[in-house]
Amino acid sequence: MKGTNALGEAAVQAGCRCYFGYPITPQNELTEYMAKRMAEVGGVFVQGESETASINMVLGAAASGVRAMTSSSSPGISLKQEGISFIAADELPAVIVNIMRGGPGLGNIAPSQGDYYQATRGGGHGDYRTPVFAPASVQELYDLTMHAFDVADIYRTPVLILGDGMLGQIMEPIVLNKKNKVKLPPKDYVLDGAKGRPSRIIRSLILDTREMEAHNWKLKRKYDLMRKELPLWEEFMTDDAKLVVVAYGTAARIAKGAVKRSRKEGLAVGLLRPMTLWPFPDEAIKSVAKNARLFLVFEMNTGQMVDDVRLVLEDSSKCVFYGRPGGEVPSPMEISRIIGRYWVQKEL
């Protein structure tokens, strides 16, 4: 199955019945898939007049109690930030897919990881966070998308799925796993006409400073809970690793190949792959750092996630960075050469 289709199908199987989006490469296949599938399952598909409109349609559908999704690529995600901030403030569930492309500006349509900061620091205005899932295979696009809808409902939050054009395009065999049975909280916020109950309000405007402060602390407590409950990661050959590569998504696929190569050369190298970028798997880094002497962070940007790794390590001399920010996807050989260079340089 193709990456974008796996993501779309997972959304359908998770019960998503409202999709709103605006075309942008490299994720058009997802929008087109949803156009077809929403019609088949009696759901809603609207091609909005912009990303701004689309995300606000998501807000309306989410406030209706329906599972809703939108997707776009970097420039379009910038336009959605206003709406994402409102959805976070309103505490509504929604899933937002960013199939990243090169940037800033129009950039190019090649694979990139340039939106890490935007995704993990809230992205829009105000003091909020969004959980960010970073799949690295078609199977994971499927599984993590399903999970994302549950997470959105459980915490009543917008959730991001972060991929890139390469991940969206690859074809891999997958198992269409059944949806996990998860206990979801009651949707007591839904606006469906005040029939037999007092009228409800969904709003983010809180003029009273004390009330605003209380609301922000309330959100913070929710984010703290997410930090505890949500981190996901994969470790590959980290047990005895002196050098650990940290990479996510497409970069992690390449890094895994590089680690295998370096192992053949006899180097004790491993891979730590965050599957959630926010919350970042701090504990995993800490635990691997007990044995590892060097962390090599590899990203398809000029260095963003590396800040989060350094933040955990508290010793920046233990951490080096390698980046390819133009859409050129390096080979595993290129990365294993970098590994070899640091192995010698740092006398591992």
Binding site: R17, C18, F20, V44, V46, G48, T52, A53, S54, N56, M57, V58, L59, G60, A61, A62, A63, S64, G65, V66, A68, L191
Partner: peptide, 9 residues
């Protein structure tokens, strides 16, 4: 746009 979301849902 918000209204569209509500009405379609």
């Amino acid at each position: 746009a918000v209204g569209t979301g509500f009405k379609r849902a």
